[in-house]
């Protein structure tokens, strides 16, 4: 037999809210805890990093003007605003800003990814992507790959730990030695990583436009093309020096 439940008498007000039906309005914890807020953090920190990459790439290209040009550039970075500011102070501030952007970017990514995991506790037995399905993989796994690459990259060319020339050498020497034809596998690693970065940016830059609410029907094509163009320029710009060194164009 089925159970009877009685819901309200005719004369008493009926709208004693049935708990399960009323909106579960959790007090919103502010902009940064909202999923949209975190996306904005990703977009803004991403933009900072793209800015850094553009400058970094322009610096790298100095190698084509000779070792001295490259070394001078590296030196100039450390002596920015000297003598008003002490040696390496501006660069350190910029580096701190960059590290902050990286940390925030990763924080937002991790917490969004955690949120996504919670939103789908039971996985599909079969799942097939209908859009450009690589994006999620390229963003999360790609992002992780980039982290590992950056660590290697810093050890190699910034701190010289894994570089044949060591830390006390001139930057240009480290770079040229690092991509020496005998170390072709480093170039290959670099190539794979930069392409990864490029793919990450192609989606990431457009995604930032979308997150910041700039995309719309009319602008979409232009924004997608802009994202693609920036990514391609960066990939080409970053790959040109190591390939040139490995193939002996720059010595």
């Amino acid at each position: 037999m089925t159970a009877t439940i009685e819901r309200g008498s005719a004369t008493a007000p009926v709208n004693t809210p049935a708990a399960k039906k009323t909106p579960t309005r959790k007090k919103p914890g502010g902009f940064l805890t909202s999923s949209n807020g975190k996306k904005v953090v990703m977009a803004v920190t991403g933009a900072v990093m793209v800015g850094f990459l553009v400058l970094h790439m322009l610096g790298n290209l100095k190698i084509f003007f000779g070792r001295d040009s490259f070394n001078d550039y590296a030196h100039a970075l450390r002596t920015l605003l000297e003598p008003i500011a002490p040696y390496r102070s501006v660069l350190t501030i910029l580096e701190i800003g960059l590290v902050l952007a990286v940390v925030l970017h990763m924080w937002a990514a991790i917490s969004l990814s955690y949120r996504a995991g919670k939103a789908r506790p039971v996985k599909y037995v079969a799942k097939k992507s209908q859009a450009n399905g690589y994006t999620t993989h390229i963003m999360r796994w790609g992002g992780l790959t980039i982290v590992f690459f950056v660590i290697w990259h810093l050890l190699d060319l910034t701190f010289g730990v894994v570089n044949p020339k060591g830390f006390d050498s001139a930057p240009a020497d480290r770079m040229i030695a690092g991509f020496d034809p005998s170390r072709w596998w480093v170039t290959l690693l670099y190539l794979v990583a930069v392409v990864m970065v490029g793919l990450h940016l192609r989606h990431g830059i457009w995604s930032a436009f979308q997150t910041l609410g700039w995309a719309n029907r009319d602008r979409n094509k232009v924004l997608r093309a802009t994202a693609g163009l920036i990514s391609i320029v960066l990939v080409v710009g970053f790959l040109a020096p190591p390939l040139a060194i490995t193939f002996g164009v720059v010595k």
Binding site: T4, I5, R7
Partner: peptide, 10 residues
């Protein structure tokens, strides 16, 4: 749930 419910009104 299959519950049979009574709802009263005017």
């Amino acid at each position: 749930t299959g519950e049979i419910e009574r709802h009263l009104a005017d």
